[in-house]
Every structure is written in structure tokens, then in C-alpha cells.
Design a protein around this nucleic acid. Structure first.
Lengths: 117, 117
DNA sequence: CAGTATCCAAAAGGATACTG
DNA sequence: CAGTATCCTTTTGGATACTG
């Protein structure tokens, strides 16, 4: 786990280590809305307002921050289409699609294992 | 996944709904240390100090709060063994073991997909 | 439409010292 | 050993009003 093959672009991280950057990534994905945004984008690109409606209860400020952070970490793209009014599409990157899979499992597990009522 | 067998005690939740209790559960699992604690307990019960060492950088106050919350939600048990000095074991419940699976996938994905360096 | 700006409250995180 | 208690900082969340 501390060895790095010369031909590999990746090393294995340890989320239990204090300074491991993987922990930052885990933190980003652990935000209140991050997993929900990524899940919403699994079906295809969405616009800001569309996401806002899908994520019941999110305020524009918080949604913006969530989107920016996901963009900074390379999970989603933000595409501005110059028209009037302006149109902005958010979509998953390959990395985002990769993260979407385990997150979907987690969401599904939570949905089926949470007692309602 | 949206069907519920008549003999099942569970209904399907929707984490996208504002008032869905599943969202609380997702939030608990999304805490900075929750997924790490659950992962640490997958190998077997651990004591407070053992967890503290495994989760590099966690303070006793924060660890306590994390453990209490996981206990409240039924993911872990806290067992006090009356001896001197007192011994306290934390262990996963069945629910906790269930949650551990998708969380392990997520951790593993993060560890292998986070660029280090 | 897709955000910003502002203000605020609450939660989370953390360092450190102390205790049954 | 397994926490509490205290104090503090940072982060997060949120309501609302406004703008190019």
C-alpha cells in the first residue's frame, strides 16, 4: 500500500491516514447533497433549476457550493450554452460516473433499510 | 426496488424527499468519521482507544459523539465490561454490517481512484 | 435562468485538560 | 481506560433578496 508500480498512474491511498488526500475526497462525497447530486446526474445532464427541484429543500447558495466543489474535484462538468437566457448543463465526468456506482449502492441500501413510519 | 413484499417489514424510502427519514440515515453515514468507524469494526469489536488509534487524528470528544450517534441509529453496540479498569467494546450490529458493505465499496473506490502526489 | 450577496444559526470539528 | 468538560474555530446549512 505504500509501494507504487512505476507504470501505474495511481497509488493506493489509506483513508485512515491523517493526511491522506483520499480523505478529502471521501469528505466531498459525504456532503449532505453531494451523493444526491451525483445520483441525479446518473440519468443524464441536468440544468441548475432542474437539480434544485430534484433535491427538495436545497437553497441556491448551497446547491451552487455543492456543484462547485464537485466540479473542482473532477466529478462533474459545468457547461455554459450561450443563449438567451443562458443555459447551464451539469453532467458527470468519467470519474463522477465511477463514484456514482458505489454511491448508488449506498443510497439504495439506505432506502431499503430505513424503517419508515 | 420499489416493490415491497407483503412479508417485509420495510417500505421503500426516497432520499430525495425533503422529509424522508432515510436522509437522516444518509447524513449519519456521511459524517467525517462514521464510515471509518464502521469500516474499522468490520474486522471485529474494538475498544475506544483502539478506535482512536485507528482513526488517526480524531479527538476523544468527536469520537464519542460519532459512536453515540451510530449507536442511536442502531449501527453499533456499546458493551461495558465491568472490570478494573473498565473495558468498553464497540461492535457492529446486523444493520451496521449491512451498511458496512456499501461503505466499504465507497472507501475502496475512493482509495483506488484518488490520485496521490 | 442561473446564479450572487448578505446575514444568520446550527452543527461539526478540534485542542487540551481533567476524572471515575 | 474511557471517556467529560471547556473553549474555540471552521464548516455547513439555510432564508431571502437581488441581478446579468
Amino acid at each position: 500500500m505504500t509501494t507504487t508500480p512505476a507504470d501505474s498512474p495511481r497509488r493506493t491511498a489509506d483513508v485512515y491516514a491523517t493526511l491522506c488526500p483520499a480523505r478529502d475526497v471521501l469528505d466531498v462525497l459525504s456532503g449532505k447533497w453531494s451523493a444526491l447530486v451525483i445520483g441525479a446526474l446518473e440519468e443524464g445532464p441536468r440544468r441548475f433549476t432542474s437539480l434544485q427541484h430534484r433535491l427538495q429543500g436545497v437553497s441556491p447558495k448551497v446547491l451552487t457550493r455543492t456543484l462547485r466543489r464537485l466540479e473542482d474535484y473532477g466529478f462533474i462538468t459545468r457547461t455554459v450554452i450561450a443563449q438567451v437566457p443562458v443555459r447551464v448543463d451539469y453532467a458527470l465526468t468519467d470519474l463522477g460516473r465511477g463514484a456514482a456506482a458505489p454511491l448508488a449502492h449506498l443510497r439504495h441500501w439506505v432506502e431499503t433499510n430505513t424503517r419508515i413510519g
